[in-house]
Structures are given as structure tokens and as C-alpha cells.
């Protein structure tokens, strides 16, 4: 019945209690991911003609991007020449993120949005900070909420405590007919298996479109990573000019035994 602020000691106590359990849980997680592996997401069409059309559309799209990047590179080269005139102290960049593979050692399997326990190994605790991003491939699966003495805690993207997240929606298959950036959204989670966001009805978002992280409050290394796919577009009766998007993460931490944390802490 005590306020949350009085219960801080329980996190350290949980760390100690989990010490003897962690090795067995680790084996269990590895066995679970071996027996019931995650299904690899595939959004490619099965028909050969469609695949060829898609390949041609993608080739044209990337060719345009390449041209645009060439112009951008020239522009950046000009800026670089200006920056080279500055003193050395002005050129120091923030540390790039470090990819740290971390084993999952505990979770509540019945809760699709439940927190996960990560094993901390020697030398990694200082590199992982609260708020760092955990990924599988290019898919964001959650954020670190706590780094304890022996373990770290990760909340998945669909956990209710993840808060509001800014994101961008792009077409699943680039084409000339659709805008490369369909909408910018504020993503919300309610603790269920999916997330949701509202967009104008004219945005042209369709089922299967990809949602990318685009939130300045998240670590910079996460920008552009995938948050999920649009699995449902629902018309909101109360607001006829808006649609509700149901977004499902492509990868879930509960299906794997190991995640990559993009650590932003400094090496010891």
C-alpha cells in the first residue's frame, strides 16, 4: 500500500533474488527460442510478375535517391570545407552507439507487453544507460528502463509505459504513385499486442506500410529504425476526417533469446 517512492529497495532486492534463478532462466529462454523460433517477417509478394514490378519500382526509387544523395554530398562537402576552418574542439562528435548483444533471462510469457529481464555481463553495465534502444535487426523492440546491479530491465514498444513516440510512415513498396513519406504520427501503446495512432483520412496510409522511429527524444541512433507495420486502418466515427491506424511490431522480444542494445554509455 506504500507509495512507489518508498519501494525503491525492492528493485535491489529483486536483483539479489534473481541471482540463483538467472542461469536456469537463461537456459529456459534459449530452449524456448530454439523450440518455438520467431517467424521471420516477409512482406514480399509471392507472385513472380509482382515481384519483378516491385524490383523495377525499387530500382527507380533508389536511383532517384542516389541522385538526390549526390547533390546532398556536394552540399555537405561545401559545409565540410567551412567546418575545417574551425578549431579542433568544435569538431568533437558525441560517441557513436555501441552494439551490445544481451541475453534475455526472464519474462512473463503470458503478457505480450510485459517487461523483460536482461543479463548484465562484466563490462557492459557502464555502456548501457536508461533509455537506450534494444533492437533485433532493424526493428526496435523496446527501451531500457533500468540498469541494476546484476540485470537490466527492458520494456517492449507496446508496453503502456513507453509513452508517446513520434514516428513516420512510409510505403512498404516505394512507387511513383505514392508519396515517400505518407504521414508523421504520434504512436501510443495501451499494453496490448498492438500500438495505435491517428492520421488524417487523406494521408493515403494503407495496410502493410512501414512505421519508422522519428523521435528527437529518443537516442539519435534509433532514428529510421522500424517500429512496426500498419495492420489495420479504421475510420473513426467521431472524427470522419481522421483514421486510426493499428500498428503491430514485426519482431517481438518474447520470440528470441538475445537482443542488441544500442548502448550510449562510455566504455570503462
Amino acid at each position: 500500500m506504500s507509495p512507489v517512492s518508498w519501494l525503491g529497495w525492492t528493485s535491489d532486492f529483486a536483483d539479489l533474488v534473481r541471482v540463483p534463478v538467472t542461469p536456469f532462466s537463461h537456459v529456459g529462454i534459449m530452449m524456448t527460442s530454439w523450440v518455438r523460433p520467431a517467424i521471420e517477417p516477409s512482406d514480399l509478394p509471392t507472385d513472380e510478375k509482382e515481384r519483378n514490378d516491385l524490383a523495377i519500382a525499387e530500382r527507380d526509387y533508389f536511383r532517384r535517391l542516389w541522385t538526390a544523395q549526390m547533390f546532398r554530398a556536394s552540399k555537405l562537402a561545401d559545409q565540410l570545407r567551412e567546418l575545417q576552418a574551425l578549431p579542433d574542439s568544435a569538431l568533437r562528435n558525441p560517441l557513436p552507439p555501441i552494439s551490445i548483444p544481451i541475453d534475455i533471462t526472464g519474462r512473463k510469457s503470458s503478457d505480450v507487453a510485459g517487461t523483460l529481464e536482461l543479463k548484465l555481463v562484466r563490462g557492459t553495465s557502464s555502456r548501457i544507460l536508461v533509455g537506450d534502444i534494444a533492437v533485433i535487426g532493424s526493428d526496435v523492440i523496446g527501451r531500457i528502463t533500468r540498469v541494476g546491479m546484476t540485470r537490466a530491465q527492458l520494456i517492449p514498444m507496446n508496453h503502456k509505459d513507453i509513452g508517446l513516440t513520434r514516428a513516420s510512415i512510409v510505403p512498404a513498396h516505394p512507387s511513383n504513385l505514392r508519396s515517400p513519406l505518407l504521414a508523421e504520427i504520434i504512436l501510443q501503446s495501451n499494453g496490448g499486442p498492438t500500438m495505435f495512432a491517428d492520421v488524417p483520412a487523406t494521408s493515403g496510409v494503407q495496410t502493410g506500410d512501414i512505421v519508422h522511429l522519428n523521435d528527437p527524444s529518443w537516442p539519435r541512433s534509433g532514428t529510421g529504425l522500424t517500429l512496426g507495420v500498419v495492420t489495420e486502418v479504421v475510420q473513426i466515427d467521431e472524427a470522419p476526417l481522421r483514421q486510426r491506424l493499428i500498428i503491430t511490431p514485426r519482431r517481438r522480444a518474447r520470440d528470441v533469446s538475445r537482443v542488441i542494445v544500442l548502448g550510449t554509455g562510455e566504455e570503462e
Partner: peptide, 20 residues
């Protein structure tokens, strides 16, 4: 109490656990 201290059970803000 040990179950309440397990991952995913009774977790509060800041990693604290609700024992009870």
C-alpha cells in the same frame, strides 16, 4: 513474495516491485 519480485510481475516505475 518471490513471484512478486520476478520479471513482469508487479513492476512499478523505476524498476520497483509491488510485493503483496
Amino acid at each position: 513474495a518471490l513471484v512478486d519480485l520476478s520479471p513482469g510481475y508487479g513492476e512499478l516505475v523505476g524498476g520497483a516491485h509491488l510485493i503483496g
